[in-house]
């Protein structure tokens, strides 16, 4: 994966999330949204190391993971709008997204809920001798859930091909990490469970990608489960389209510091240092803007789902 491809994937996610935020005020997306702005590099760096047959699970803030794994944009937007062509036909909304064809195996908002599912999917892959790596993304808060430790224990015990990606963005809603966990690295606990550990600056997509490639290669070779911890930062409010720094739950200047190391704009600057690079970046912006406009139009052209269909979804 070239640096430009990594950049383009991040830029696309950033612009999609911004477009969602811009349109959210129209009150037509009638579900909670948790935007990935600021955290694009982790999703992109990890997913760029995967093959199509590999599987990815996410949590409540999963747009970036879904898109980075190749999830269908129009289906995601239609889902957020609650329409029939949505990836869950309107049953799920932003917090429940899935694209099986792309290997995005599902995201749900119960914190930690998909971690054992990822381990179970990796267990099934091992039992069936499939060449498949399973990735699960989660935050620092998730690491406080007991089920995470139960799952990692089982994964290490059975040496399953699973990559745990902890996006440590320092906050669980409005509560800082230091209020919730003692002062020790999260990955040290995973190391004690027997995982192989990688860490990366989560605003450096190439660093995340390099670590992920090594991790995935290890897993394909039958190595122990890998735990990758990435430092990162959520720019917008926990839930919704707006800024919330004025609420004062984060130290003054902290957001500005992370914005100054923006994974997208930093790489845009680097790439634009040559005239050819600048042309490519501008072209990417234009292409992505066109794709987003088309995807919103296509999503909004979807029929509305019918309540009469709901009972049919309950049992297989």
């Amino acid at each position: 994966m070239t640096t430009f491809s990594l950049f383009r994937s991040m830029l696309r996610i950033r612009r999609i999330e911004e477009a969602i935020a811009e349109r959210y005020g129209a009150q037509e997306m009638r579900c909670p949204v948790h935007l990935s702005i600021g955290q694009e590099a982790v999703a992109v760096g990890v997913c760029a190391a995967l093959q199509p047959q590999d599987g990815v699970f996410g949590g409540h803030r999963a747009h970036a993971h879904y898109l980075a794994k190749g999830g269908d944009l129009t289906a995601m937007l239609a889902e957020i709008y609650g329409l029939e062509n949505g990836c869950c036909r309107g049953v799920g909304g932003s917090m429940h997204i899935i694209d099986l064809a792309a290997g995005f195996l599902g995201a749900v908002p119960i914190v930690g809920a998909t971690i054992p599912l990822a381990v179970g999917a990796a267990w099934a892959a091992k039992l069936r001798n499939e060449d498949k790596v399973i990735v699960v993304f989660f935050g620092d808060g998730t690491f406080e859930e007991g089920v995470v430790h139960e799952s990692i224990n089982f994964a290490v015990l059975h040496r399953l091909p699973v990559l745990f990606v902890c996006e440590n963005n320092l906050y669980a809603c409005y509560t800082r990490l230091s209020e919730r966990q003692p002062d020790r690295p999260i990955h040290a606990i995973a190391a004690a469970h027997g995982c192989r550990i990688f860490t990366a600056e989560g605003d450096d997509v190439e660093a995340v990608h390099a670590a992920s490639r090594m991790a995935v290669a290890d897993l394909r070779a039958g190595g122990a489960p890998v735990f990758l911890e990435c430092s990162t930062y959520r720019w917008r409010e926990h839930c919704g389209p707006n800024q919330d720094d004025h609420l004062g739950y984060r130290p003054s200047g902290e957001l500005a510091k992370w914005e100054s190391t923006c994974p997208v704009s930093r790489l845009a600057s680097t790439l634009s240092s040559s005239p050819e690079g600048a042309r490519l970046v501008a072209a990417a912006e234009a292409e992505i803007a066109g794709e987003i406009a088309s995807a919103f139009a296509a999503a909004l052209a979807s029929p509305v789902p019918q309540p009469a269909d709901l009972p049919g979804y309950l049992y297989a």
Binding site: G55, L105, G106, A113, I115, P116, L117, A118, V119, G120, A121, A122, W123, A124, A125, L127, R128, G146, V147, H149, E150, S151, N153, F154
Partner: peptide, 15 residues
């Protein structure tokens, strides 16, 4: 809880 989730994960993966 973890093993139940792991079994759900295996079930949605074809086991």
């Amino acid at each position: 809880n973890g093993i139940t989730g792991i079994c759900v994960g295996a079930a949605i993966s074809g086991m």
